[in-house]
Amino acid sequence: MNSIFANSKDVFLDIVNAKDYVQLDRVSTIYQSLKDSIKKPLKMILLYGRPGTGKSMFLNKLYKDLSSTQKVYLYQTPILDESEFYKTLAQDLFQTKYSGELNFTQFMKIVESKDIEEIPVVLLDEAQLYSEVLMEKIRLLSDTRTVKFVITLHKTEKEDIIAKEHFQTRIWETIELENASSTELKIYIQKKLMKANCFDSANMFTNKAVSRIHKITKGNYRDTNKLLYTLFDLYSIYENNQQLSAIKTNQVSNKIIEMSAIHTGLIDA
C-alpha cells in the first residue's frame, strides 16, 4: 500500500491531462472567454504565456470540452514538415488521404472541393516551433474561413515578434496566461491533492509554506509541479528510512522545500 506521500507525489507528475485541470477563478474566467471566442466567427485565436503557465493544459481542456459538441482537432506536437502538415489536416478534417507530396495549392483545392457544414477548430500547441512560411500559410488558410485555428505560443521575445508581425492584424482574440499568485498556487496545490484524495498532504500546505514555494517557483505551474513531486518524493524517502521524526509532517518543512528546490535546480546551491 502506497503511503500518502507517494500518492501525493504522483499528483504532481508533469503530464498534461485534462482530467488534472484545476479550476481557478481567474483561469476559469479566461477559459470561459476562450470558449466564447470559439463560438464567434473569428479566424484565429492566440493563446500565449510563459512556459509552464498552463497553455497546453488549457488547450487540452478545451479540446476535451469541445470535442463532444463540435469538430475539434488538437495537435500537441508540431508537425514541422509542411507537406505532412497539409496531409494530416486533409486526412483529419476532410477525410482525404494523399499518398504523395501535398503542397499548399493542392491542399487549398481539397478544401474548396469539400462542402463544409461546420467549421472545424484546429488547436495547435507550441506554434512557435512552426516555420515562418508555414505560419503564413496557416494564416492564409484561416482567411478562407474554412478552418478556425487556436494556437498557443511561448511568450518570449522572439515569439512576441511572431505574434505582432504575422498575427496582430488577423488574430481577433488574444488570451494571455500568467503565473499563479501565492493564493492561487495554494488553491491549485490543495485542489490537485484533494482531487487525488490526499487530504492530509493538502493540509500540510500552510500559507507560509506556499509562500516559500511561490517565492521559489514564482507561481509557475510546471516548476511547482516539479518541486512538489520532488518534495513528496523526499518525504517518501524519509518515511521509508523511518526518519520522519527528524522533519515536520504536520506542515511542509522549509528544509524539504529547499532541498527539493536544490534538486530541481530552482535554487542554485
Binding site: 520532488t230 518524493d233 523526499l234 524517502i237 524519509y238 528510512n241 528544509k255 529547499e258 532541498m259 536544490i262 534538486h263 535554487i267 546551491a269
Partner: peptide
C-alpha cells in the same frame, strides 16, 4: 532514488550561504 545525504549536504551549504 534521491540521494538524501548528498542533498542534505547541499542544503546545509546552501543554508550557510544564505
Amino acid at each position: 532514488m534521491l540521494n538524501i545525504i548528498e542533498l542534505e549536504k547541499r542544503w546545509f551549504k546552501y543554508k550557510i550561504k544564505s
